[in-house]
Design a protein around this nucleic acid. Sequence first.
DNA 1: TTGTACGCGTTATCAA
DNA 2: TTGATAACGCGTACAA
Lengths: 318, 318
Amino acid sequence: MKTVSRVVNGERYVKPATAERVNAALTKLGYQPNDVARSLREQKSRTIGVIIADVSNPFYSGCAKAAEEVAREHGYAMLLASSDEDVEIEKEYIDLLTRRRVDGLLLWTSNDRGGHLNDGRLAGIPVVAVDRPVEGLLTDMIIVQNRMGSKKAVEHLIGHGHRRIAYIGGQEHLYPTRKRLQGYREVLREQGLEEIVRMGAPDIASAADAMRQLLELPAPPTAVFAFNNLTTMGVLHALDRAGLRVPEDVAVAGFDDIELASLLHPRLTLVRQPAAEIGRRAAELLFQRLEGNSSAKPRRVVVEAELMVRESCGCHKD
Amino acid sequence: MKTVSRVVNGERYVKPATAERVNAALTKLGYQPNDVARSLREQKSRTIGVIIADVSNPFYSGCAKAAEEVAREHGYAMLLASSDEDVEIEKEYIDLLTRRRVDGLLLWTSNDRGGHLNDGRLAGIPVVAVDRPVEGLLTDMIIVQNRMGSKKAVEHLIGHGHRRIAYIGGQEHLYPTRKRLQGYREVLREQGLEEIVRMGAPDIASAADAMRQLLELPAPPTAVFAFNNLTTMGVLHALDRAGLRVPEDVAVAGFDDIELASLLHPRLTLVRQPAAEIGRRAAELLFQRLEGNSSAKPRRVVVEAELMVRESCGCHKD
DNA sequence: TTGTACGCGTTATCAA
DNA sequence: TTGATAACGCGTACAA
């Protein structure tokens, strides 16, 4: 009888006796429902896709972890992909995921121009743009206060009396790098200070290189604001190697909280991005669309970036 | 015509002219192949499942990243799940993944007794046991030299003249904790030294607690060997709070390399687990079974754990 | 070279 | 309350 389905799904209209017989047979045969067939039949995979830049970066993986928990609560699985900030890989993965008919997508795009997304590739799948908006694509999105976060940090450094403050940024085509640079710029202009900018240093090695170059300047910066967790580490590494002390010789502040931030000497002053909150709320936005009103007007959530003042900026704490 | 399939898959026996017409129609309609249907038809999802303990722990996410790259090269997607070291969640996820018919599974089990895996739940899906073997289940497996790694670290601490060396471990029911404890024990016995063990401290907070307790002992340890990256951080945190210096007051060595290890003062002496290598080779074992000889005898790969001597043990480096 | 029929495992529909 | 039938989109087998 094909009404085994009713038993498996615990539907009504099944005589208890029959249900028992069916269940007995089921366990005896080691039956396991086939969700592939179910997905095909229901046109719904109960799976979400998540494309992040780098699984091994604690900020992204913190987001992914929180998103996964939300997915789990909803009975969804998570297809996770790392794009390595490469648009080609991102496109490849978008295809891979849409072909597998994910019900929705959490996307940290590597190209906020969004040109690679407008050709129908997404096939109407709900997308939540995370951390970076996608230009020209009306989707839900969640971003942090990049500009404001930068401003807080740079203003704080100025408050310590610094006049030559450098910004070491990541890849210029990425939204967070640009916005953080913008915040830095606004503050320096307001104060009539000169900009010292090094871009293209998204990882430890290149950030360390950038920092070394800055130290060779005729008038090296007395303070540095670093783009993200990896950049900050690179900066510290270079200063350490140069035998310079933080904050006495060079003050440091960065974006992205690091778990070890309070263990380093000095403790790091950082602009905190709440990874878990971002991941959780991104997933919630998606599920609201999947399980609620799918045609609601796109929502835009902005998460606060909090300045965690510790010691690397020059403050004293005990 | 249903032979669109032939064009999509680039098979032979299609007149170029027809192929063109089909392709034109395809792009016009925005056709996207449905891999759900394909999976059902082929009884093959081209998806692997990965169950790790915690996505946000850099060791696990480093493994996952490498595994994902291998999967990508093979055209496979990765369904990633975090069990949080909870057997119930792990079981839930195993069901979720097998129902979705993953072709294979990379499993960091939270219960190496394996009782939850023998009841046919896995339905014959190839499994690679990673980091922890699964008792009673004949699968491919890849583990690190936990015991040897511990021994190297503890012997090194003894070489610095320490006699009271503590081990702060994680959850006792987990394989790595036990094996690392075993290595520690063997060395202490050989040397006729007294064991000082605190278990159940797998995260920062509980490790810090454990360390605080050790400091209140009548004869506190002069050196500590910490179970993993988080434990090490907790130990450092507690020592920092207690105003003790490393390595002068208490020497520290730990398992798991931390990216920041060389930035902390002092630089941390750690037993390195090559996360990327483990993830990559685990995935390779799985694909060998999926695409090669599926009935080959289970393979067991052991990865070396290298002691990275830096400063927290008492060594001087510049 | 092209097209038809069938079945993968599931659920919705409708008749019994 | 139960069962038969069709359909989801694809690939295989076979006929044309």
